[in-house]
Design a protein around this nucleic acid. Sequence first.
DNA 1: GGTTCTAGAACC
DNA 2: GGTTCTAGAACC
Lengths: 101, 101
Amino acid sequence: MDFRDRSLPDGINPMNFPAKLWRLVNNPLNEGISWDIHGEVILIDQHLFEKQILSPRANTSPDAFKTTNFSSFVRQLNLYGFKKVDQPIKQLDTLQDIINL
Amino acid sequence: MDFRDRSLPDGINPMNFPAKLWRLVNNPLNEGISWDIHGEVILIDQHLFEKQILSPRANTSPDAFKTTNFSSFVRQLNLYGFKKVDQPIKQLDTLQDIINL
DNA sequence: GGTTCTAGAACC
DNA sequence: GGTTCTAGAACC
């Protein structure tokens, strides 16, 4: 299996939430949503995400949601099993800094 | 009873949520939160409210909340029995317009 | 007593 | 299948 292949598996409706999320997070133009460095966690900047993805102005994309509320987006994440994790940002860097002392 | 009296009843802790809400909504400087025309419904402009009340920059007021998340503010409203109502704005005006035709 | 994260339920 | 509003539960 090629983990660089970011196409969707057969049988997944490309218009449903998981597929939209997949495309959004894989598009580097979307600064509000991205992978963490290990590709295991989705990082979301609420303010940027609201501005670039959820705002009515951003509604030109086919990946736009019907909602404009961040809380509704979170509800969808939870319905599909996503859990919030504590910010892993900088922790490894900090540890590395300590090791490098 | 003087309904114009907007002081707090005895026994209400002025630092708890209902008292803070009371002062916020009665302060005309807070454009993000106000009474409806009949004084029965609290009108909240989420964007303005976040900017003027919840944002860390606005945290100088003693009526500031510990949270910066609008959803946590809504959780508090619900815990104290507040319910969201459909926007009553303009409906009466429109009816009046029709009557006046 | 307040805040956060997630889920239930009703509705669209 | 998605969205909205409210509540449960755990934590601070």
